[in-house]
Structures are given as structure tokens and as C-alpha cells.
């Protein structure tokens, strides 16, 4: 069989699956342009005159800008912090591995398997006692800690791809670890660092559990913003959809620009 030629049946099936997966996002986007009455009409209305009322409400009255600002600050700051900590950590693990480096790496990753809700109460209490409830600082630190294992892993695998000889040559040239990181690793691993940063930003942006539980009016991110719409007043589908579109759109645009970088970053070392 010719492997390059897809059967028409397979192509059709792929399109159907893709459409099914994409449908919720499509429907959300469509609903965002409806009025509340159109949004809950049964049977659903497919053809209508699109309006911007829901968006206006979300941005003007619900304070979209504050939440968006929080999202940007929290995701970028937590990523920067994670990179600053992960970079030397990955350097040490990749180039000066000890007996337990592998175990340490696996252990770090295993912390990602812990259900966050398991530590909700202690973290909540810590934040409360430190006066960090509803602050960006708390979210930045928590998001940084959540993403740290992944960032360390990614940088570690990128560093492992850099021939050790190069760093040894640098040692012979009288270049210490700090200068090695600045003059050699930073430029050589820059694709990896960018990939890791992109992933960390996206993960922090999408993080909902902690921001919903630890923040309220001041430090809430866009995840909180959406959550507020399914609030006591009842469900407003059109406004909720508009809010969701506004929360998802920036990272979707960002992600599509970053896509190629990201795929390369995640598959590094897989194919030589």
C-alpha cells in the first residue's frame, strides 16, 4: 500500500473528528456575538446579526482589563522567575551530575502528579498568615513552583544536547561556570530557553485552580474572570462566551505564533 496517499474515508473521518473537537470553541465564539435571548434559544439560532453587546459588558462593567493585566503580569513574572532558578539548576544537573541527579529529576517531575487540591488547605493557610491572599505575589510564586519541574526538565534536555567537550574547552580557556552560562549556554540553548518560556507562560496563563481559590477582586487572572460569570445571578451564556473569548484569544494568538518553536522544543533529542 502506498503510505503517502490517504484514503478518502480516512480524510473524511479526520475532518469530522477535528470539527467535533473544535466545535465547542466555535460555538463559544459564535455565542459571544449573540444577545442573551438568542444564546438560549432552542432550537439554536445559526443565522443572526452579530452584536458586540456582550463584549462591551465584559470589558466595561466586569473589569476585563484588570484581570488581563493580572494574567499578563503573573504569567510573565512567574516564567521569568522559573527560568532564573531553572537555568543554573539544569546546568548543574546536565554538566555536573551526581549519583542522585536522575532520581532528583524524576522526583521533581513526580510532584507534578500530586493533585493540587491535596495541598490547597496548607497553601491557603500559609498565604493567609503571610498576608498574601488575593495578591499577585502569591500567584507568581505558586505558578513558578508549579512550572519549575517542567522548565528544569526542558532546559536539562536542551543542555544535554550541547557537547560536553565545548564546556571542557571553555574550562581549558579559563572560563568559569558563570561565564560559561552567559557566553555559551545562553546563546547555544536559546531555542530551548524560548520554548521552555513559551510553555511556562501558556501554562501559567491557563492556570485556574489556584487563582480561583486564592484571589478575589484584586489579583484575579482571566481564569477567575470567567469563573465569576457562572455566579449567583444565574448563567448569562452570551456574556460568559464573550468573556471566555476574551480570555482565550490572547494566548491562542500567542500560541499560534509560538507553535513551531514549541513543537521543536518539546521534541528535542527525540530525533537526531
Amino acid at each position: 500500500m502506498d503510505q503517502d496517499k490517504a484514503s478518502p474515508l480516512g480524510t473524511a473521518a479526520a475532518w469530522i473528528v477535528a470539527f467535533l473537537m473544535f466545535f465547542p470553541i466555535l460555538w463559544m465564539t459564535v455565542t459571544a456575538f449573540k444577545t442573551e435571548t438568542q444564546a438560549i434559544a432552542i432550537p439554536p439560532i445559526v443565522f443572526f446579526r452579530p452584536g458586540m453587546e456582550s463584549f462591551a459588558h465584559a470589558t466595561a462593567q466586569a473589569g476585563y482589563m484588570l484581570f488581563a493585566e493580572n494574567s499578563i503580569i503573573v504569567s510573565f513574572a512567574s516564567t521569568l522567575l522559573a527560568l532564573l532558578i531553572a537555568f543554573p539548576a539544569a546546568y548543574a544537573m546536565a554538566f555536573q551530575p551526581g549519583k542522585h541527579t536522575q532520581n532528583l529529576l524524576v522526583w521533581m517531575l513526580s510532584t507534578k502528579m500530586l493533585p493540587p487540591v491535596g495541598v490547597l488547605v496548607p497553601i491557603y493557610l500559609i498565604c493567609r498568615d503571610l498576608g498574601l491572599l488575593d495578591t499577585r505575589t502569591a500567584l507568581i510564586v505558586i505558578d513558578m513552583l508549579m512550572n519549575l519541574p517542567i522548565v528544569v526538565w526542558m532546559l536539562y534536555s536542551f543542555f544535554r544536547d550541547i557537547p560536553r567537550d565545548i564546556l571542557e574547552a571553555a574550562r581549558m580557556d579559563g572560563v568559569g561556570p558563570r561565564k560559561q552560562m552567559i557566553y555559551l549556554l545562553l546563546p547555544l540553548a536559546s531555542p530551548g530557553i524560548v520554548s521552555a518560556a513559551l510553555l511556562a507562560i501558556i501554562l501559567a496563563w491557563n492556570e485556574a485552580f489556584w487563582s480561583i481559590n486564592l484571589t478575589a477582586a484584586h489579583a484575579g487572572t482571566l481564569a477567575t474572570f470567567i469563573a465569576r460569570y457562572s455566579a449567583p445571578e444565574g448563567l448569562f451564556w452570551a456574556k460568559l462566551s464573550a468573556a471566555s473569548v476574551l480570555a482565550v484569544a490572547p494566548i491562542l494568538v500567542f500560541g499560534s505564533f509560538a507553535q513551531r518553536r514549541l513543537v521543536r522544543g518539546l521534541t528535542v533529542g527525540a530525533v537526531k
Binding site: 557537547p163 567537550d165 565545548i166 571542557e168 574547552a169 571553555a170 555559551l184 547555544l188
Partner: peptide
């Protein structure tokens, strides 16, 4: 070095 270890 055997691999030359040039800074790429």
C-alpha cells in the same frame, strides 16, 4: 579535542 569542540 577529538570533536574539535569549537563554539558553534
Amino acid at each position: 579535542f577529538q570533536s574539535y569542540a569549537l563554539y558553534p
